[in-house]
Design a protein around this nucleic acid. Sequence first.
DNA 1: ATAGGGGTTCCAGTCACGGGAAGGTCAAGG
DNA 2: CCTTGACCTTCCCGTGACTGGAACCCCTAT
Lengths: 128, 128
Amino acid sequence: MNIGDVAKRTGLPAKTIRYYEEIGLIRPLRDTNGYRVFREADFHKLAFLGRARALGFSIEDCRTLMALYEDEDRASADVKRLAKKHLDQIEEKIAQLQSMQTTLTHLVQECAGDNRPDCPILKDLASG
Amino acid sequence: MNIGDVAKRTGLPAKTIRYYEEIGLIRPLRDTNGYRVFREADFHKLAFLGRARALGFSIEDCRTLMALYEDEDRASADVKRLAKKHLDQIEEKIAQLQSMQTTLTHLVQECAGDNRPDCPILKDLASG
DNA sequence: ATAGGGGTTCCAGTCACGGGAAGGTCAAGG
DNA sequence: CCTTGACCTTCCCGTGACTGGAACCCCTAT
């Protein structure tokens, strides 16, 4: 498989796949013409990475998860701890965003949104 | 006021304040020794920026909001449109995170988290 | 011979700062 | 007068996870 094929099959941009090689997440072979050659195992790794990234795991977390996946002697506790920590961060982020959402929703509701200059949004920003 | 005073009063790091000057959001005066000198108006601008940033507005949005704030002939509709667009993005982000949260919560619940290698989290990542 | 659709590398930019080096300034204490 | 320590200055690099683009090579079909 060339990079274009893997890109189609995984849904990852070719640029991203090259980047993952650059940072050592995958090690595809090379053809005599210099083209990357992806084996089925490379494809599986990329699909794994794509799903982990879609769940919001950082690249470094993905690296750890892949290492755990390939370690037959892993403890599921290590995976769970990583996932739980990530979940906690997601929940914290959601809380932050919801706080912004609450404030902004109120402000937007209160703003007339006409061609007059009077605006509660700016008033709030100006005076806390 | 020197930068340290403004940093304390606004809660913004001095580094951030220097950065805001660099990108033209504020224009403090300079003392003969080269130190930045902040007037009350500069402090107000920084406080405004701090609050806008805390609501998640991008720097460019903040620039626009400040311009609108200083424009006596603004239309509140322009402010409202900007805030609404930002609110929509926040809500989209929240939805994405909640989707991750749902999946991760299930996976974490199902994982035994002991010293055995069997792990539904890795299983999910490996096979979609 | 050429056109096109692959592929390759390398460089720069994103966003909003943060860290740290190297050095100038100022007020207080010995 | 000298030093100490807390300020302040500029400058440059690094962050995360890519994305865009330039310049160039490779392969197949016409």
